[in-house]
Simulated assay, not measured.
Amino acid sequence: MTTCFAGEKDTLRASLDRHRDAVLWKLEGLGDEPLRRPMTPTGTSLLGLVKHLAAVEYGWFVETFGGVAEPLWFTPHDDLRITPEETTEQIVALYGRARAAADRMIAALPLDSAGRPSWRDDPVSLRWTLVHMIEETARHAGHMDILRELIDGATGDHPPAAQAG
């Protein structure tokens, strides 16, 4: 069955995964220097956006719904910055672990489950959180698309068919 005819939760999850995969594709084929290069006056880089998305996956899906996220070595104020000590492999692996932890929470909970983010007064449902994270991930994947185009001209939300494999 394709996701076009899947249930609501599977449809939301497929949409989130499509954007998550686009985020990772934006890193493919680039060396360490272009991945960490600040591309805006505020210092936004491809790798910094992945680090940020890892932190928000843990925050919104795991901590909000009572799970325990791995301890992060950076603060929310530093989640877009890449330090010289942080490696590409470390950040990509963090994103993979955050995705997996989020996916476990998504699988375990009904869409109407309520969670309470520590940084908000109002509770949120898993459904609302999925929609929010689709928006958040798509927004940052769009930022990454622009940064990648500035680096080497590559654009789009998935590899061209000739490169897909």
Rank of each mutant, 00 (worst) to 15 (best):
L24R: 15
G31N: 12
R148E: 08
D157G: 14
G43D: 02
V68D: 08
R104G: 12
S113G: 05
L46N: 06
A107V: 10
E28S: 13
A54M: 05
D145K: 06
I106N: 07
T137S: 05
R81Y: 11
L49W: 03
G115V: 01
K26R: 13
E28F: 10
G67R: 04
M144Y: 06
E57L: 11
A114L: 15
D17Q: 15
I151W: 05
H158Q: 15
L94V: 00
Q163D: 12
R127I: 08
T88F: 02
V92C: 04
H158S: 15
H143V: 01
A161Q: 10
A69R: 11
M133Q: 14
A6Q: 07
H52K: 10
W128G: 00
L27Q: 13
P117F: 04
H158M: 13
F74L: 01
V131M: 12
L16A: 09
G31I: 11
A54F: 06
V62G: 03
F61C: 03
A101M: 08
P41R: 09
H140D: 04
M133R: 12
H158C: 15
L72H: 00
P123K: 03
G96C: 01
I82A: 03
P159I: 10
V124Y: 08
D79A: 06
V124G: 02
A162L: 14
D21C: 10
L46I: 03
T88R: 15
V68H: 05
Q90E: 15
A161L: 12
H132A: 03
W25L: 09
D122G: 02
A107C: 06
R36Q: 10
E136T: 02
P71T: 10
S15M: 15
L126M: 11
G156F: 08
D122P: 00
G29V: 12
A107F: 08
D78S: 13
L24H: 08
V62E: 02
A69T: 02
R104L: 11
D21G: 14
L35T: 04
S113Q: 11
T64Q: 00
T42S: 14
L80R: 11
P110I: 04
A162R: 13
D10M: 09
V56R: 03
G67T: 03
E57S: 11
P84E: 07
D32T: 14
A100C: 08
F74Q: 01
A101D: 12
E57Y: 09
Y95T: 00
E149Y: 11
R18F: 15
D122I: 05
I151N: 05
L24C: 10
T129V: 07
H158D: 15
E70L: 07
A107G: 04
A14C: 00
S113C: 09
L12C: 02
D79L: 01
M133C: 13
L109H: 01
F74K: 03
P76K: 10
M105V: 14
L130T: 06
L24Q: 08
F65M: 01
A6D: 10
G165Y: 14
V92N: 01
T129D: 02
R104A: 14
A108G: 12
H52Q: 08
L150E: 12
A55F: 13
D103F: 13
P123V: 04
D112H: 13
L150A: 12
P84F: 01
R81K: 15
A69H: 01
P34E: 09
T2L: 12
Y95A: 10
T129C: 09
P38L: 07
G115A: 00
